[in-house]
Simulated assay, not measured.
Amino acid sequence: MKAVYTERHRSHDPQFFLVRGVIKRTTEQPERADRLLKGLAAGSHDIIEPTAFGQGPRARVHSAEYLRFLADAWNEWSALGDAGPEMIANIHPVRQAATYPTSIVGKLGWHTADTACPIGPGTWAGACAASDVAVTAAQLVLDGEDASYALCRPPGHHAYADMAGGFCFLNNTAIAAAHLRLRHERVAILDVDVHHGNGTQGIFYARPDVLTVSIHADPSDFYPFVWGYAHERGEGAGLGANFNIPLPIGTGDDTYLTALADAKKTIEAFAPGALVVALGLDASEHDPLKGMSITTSGFSRIGDVIARIGLPTVIVQEGGYLSDVLGDNLTAFLGGFEGAR
């Protein structure tokens, strides 16, 4: 399997993370990519640089207003003269009878769902690089590869069409799926991150052509708290094209694999032409966010089941934070996937 990666992710190096009122350094650090690269090296994957696709693929899922905000945000923030070293909103409008703001402080609140997505001087460049990684991996599959892996950083599945959130700015998973739609009438997304892919769900919620399936920790006790429940099934033309499987905190391998079998059946019934896997390795028993208890061998089994769906597949890296087994878990997942192909 070919893997796509660029060092340009390093321009995004966020520091701020607010956890239950305590300010900490974010877990979404550049070192994540270093550990994932070690996992790729252990699996002997060919690593290629992404192609620069420009705004076109991003504009398929994100609003023009939002993309302008991200591109101009740091310069506007810096021009304030008395602003902090990272952009963190102090207002999040609920958008009821609201007017789009002209101030960068207002726009920052409008376009961020939470405080877990601080914007720095290199955030836009890093996010664009990650989206190019995802599109390049999707293009490899369109060009005939059976599967590809996109080592995206920053991650993307919490980003809505016009809002950042949860470490995410551009929704790499959604962008890859939209690129596959250029050729395939139907595409499925399977999100196995420990957190619900709320941004991805939001982007496709009213669309019948993209099935979104997410297996994640119960949002009543875990981020994103207000999205990701089983009753969320889509709306309008997309009703029935969204499938959430929330699992208890601490879920281990066997229970997870039972849920994955249900997800597999749902995807097969949808009959898509291609699959995007939002790969979160943060379901690990050793992940610092402590949502589930998947073992390294469990990730291999997960990869095996997903491979047996039998579709052309783009694997997009989402979560997975600093632990001694982060790279091992990637090696295990990709090994399990390739072994079943």
Rank of each mutant, 00 (worst) to 15 (best):
M1S: 13
K2Y: 06
V4A: 01
Y5S: 13
E7H: 13
R8D: 15
R10P: 07
S11Q: 15
D13Q: 11
I23Q: 09
T26Q: 13
Q29K: 15
P30A: 10
L36R: 06
L37D: 01
H45N: 08
D46H: 12
I47S: 14
I47K: 08
I47Y: 03
E49N: 13
T51N: 15
A52I: 14
F53W: 05
Q55R: 13
R58I: 12
Y66L: 04
L67N: 08
L70I: 09
W77C: 06
W77R: 10
W77T: 00
L80T: 10
G84A: 04
E86H: 06
I88D: 01
I88L: 04
V94H: 15
A98I: 11
Y100W: 05
I104Q: 05
G106N: 01
K107D: 05
L108P: 02
A113C: 03
A116W: 08
A116C: 00
G122D: 03
T123R: 02
W124C: 09
W124V: 03
G126P: 03
A127E: 00
A129N: 06
A130K: 07
S131R: 00
A134C: 10
V135M: 01
V135D: 00
T136S: 05
A137W: 03
L140R: 07
L142A: 05
D143R: 02
E145H: 04
S148Y: 03
Y149D: 13
L151D: 02
P155M: 07
H158C: 07
C168K: 04
C168D: 08
F169Y: 09
F169S: 03
N172E: 12
T173K: 11
A174R: 06
A176F: 10
A176P: 11
A177N: 05
L190S: 08
D191R: 14
D193E: 06
V194N: 12
G197I: 13
G197T: 09
T200K: 14
Q201V: 06
G202A: 12
G202I: 13
I203E: 01
I203K: 05
R207S: 14
P208K: 02
L211Q: 06
L211C: 11
H216G: 03
P224R: 00
P224I: 01
V226Y: 13
Y229V: 08
A230L: 12
A230C: 08
G238Q: 07
G240E: 13
L247V: 15
L247W: 13
P248A: 14
T251I: 15
G252C: 15
D253E: 09
T258R: 15
A259G: 11
L260M: 13
K265T: 14
I267E: 06
E268L: 14
F270R: 12
G273W: 05
V277T: 12
G280R: 05
G280S: 09
L281S: 09
A283C: 14
H286M: 10
P288L: 00
G291E: 10
I294G: 04
T295R: 03
S297V: 01
G298Q: 06
R301F: 02
R301Q: 08
G303K: 00
V305F: 03
I306S: 06
A307F: 03
G310R: 02
G310E: 03
L322T: 11
V325A: 15
L326S: 01
L326I: 05
G327V: 11
T331I: 02
F333V: 01
A340Y: 01
